[in-house]
């Protein structure tokens, strides 16, 4: 099949960018969207031109590297998938497709379709971890947790940190990302020790990095490749309020 592409090209962080036209001709409808970009790059390299930069790694929907806005929607039109799992059969012969990077103040463009997502790392560093050490190696099964709680916690832990939630949000809010982490850790016994400090520190860091607030539109949940529920945000807010109460701030 043949597709017309409008792809964001930007030479570097400070440079002006623009959408440029490309054609993917003779691609198979079985290909994934990223494989189609590989084909375009292959032909650019053959012509002695600079290939289009985009992040990708596993191509199995797990790594969280790929980060493209397809026709205005992060990760494209399919629910619960990353771009690497989006297939060309989703499009029609001769379609024109716009491809852009994540757009958020906290995610500056590095080149073309690649953005700097280190602001997420800074949020994690602010508190998104467990620091209790249960000691050496007593009994492997010393942490006993009811199955339902562990499953709820693990649904939140499925976050791959891709940043689509931020890209989809008109406020460029990191609330779904943060709340997934906070839910996961606050539900597990290992995460109790710094439970209240964590939620405050992470939210403060997100504010400092220029992420916006949540206005309950639910766009984040709609694009999340791991279908993480917006109810996590409610849990985070509850944790935050409780932390304020405990801290007496």
């Amino acid at each position: 099949m043949r597709l017309n592409l409008k792809i964001w090209r930007q030479a570097g962080p400070g440079a002006a960018g623009r959408l440029e036209d490309y054609t993917a001709s003779d691609v198979s409808s079985d290909m994934s969207f990223l494989e189609m970009l590989d084909v375009v790059n292959d032909s650019l390299v053959r012509q002695g031109k600079d290939a289009i930069a985009f992040d990708s790694d596993c191509r199995e929907g797990i790594c969280g590297m790929c980060s493209l806005v397809i026709n205005g929607v992060p990760h494209g039109p399919d629910r619960g998938t990353t771009v690497c799992q989006l297939h060309l059969r989703r499009f029609k012969e001769g379609d024109t497709i716009t491809v852009e990077p994540w757009r958020a103040r906290a995610f500056p463009v590095i080149k073309d379709l690649v953005v700097d997502r280190s602001a997420f790392d800074r949020i994690i560093i602010a508190g998104g971890y467990v620091s209790v050490n249960c000691g050496g190696a007593p009994d492997g099964n010393a942490i006993l947790i009811p199955k339902e709680i562990s499953e709820t916690a693990m649904d939140s832990a499925a976050c791959i940190g891709c940043g689509a939630c931020v890209a989809a949000c008109k406020n460029a809010s990191a609330h779904l990302f943060m709340s997934a982490k906070i839910s996961h850790l606050s539900l597990l016994p290992q995460g109790q020790v710094e439970r209240y400090r964590r939620v405050v520190a992470m939210i403060e860091q997100a504010d400092a990095d220029g992420f916006g607030s949540c206005s309950n539109e639910g766009e984040c949940e709609a694009v999340c490749p791991k279908e993480i529920s917006i109810s996590n945000i409610a849990r985070m807010t509850r944790e935050y309020v409780r932390a304020m109460l405990v801290a007496g701030k």
Binding site: N133, G135, A137, P138, K147, A153, L185, L188, Q190
Partner: peptide, 20 residues
């Protein structure tokens, strides 16, 4: 495996009796 759970915060699937 103990260390992954106890020190680093991993959590693996459980049996009905809460063991790994």
């Amino acid at each position: 495996v103990y260390e992954l759970e106890h020190t680093f915060g991993c959590f693996f699937d459980r049996n009905a009796d809460n063991t790994i």
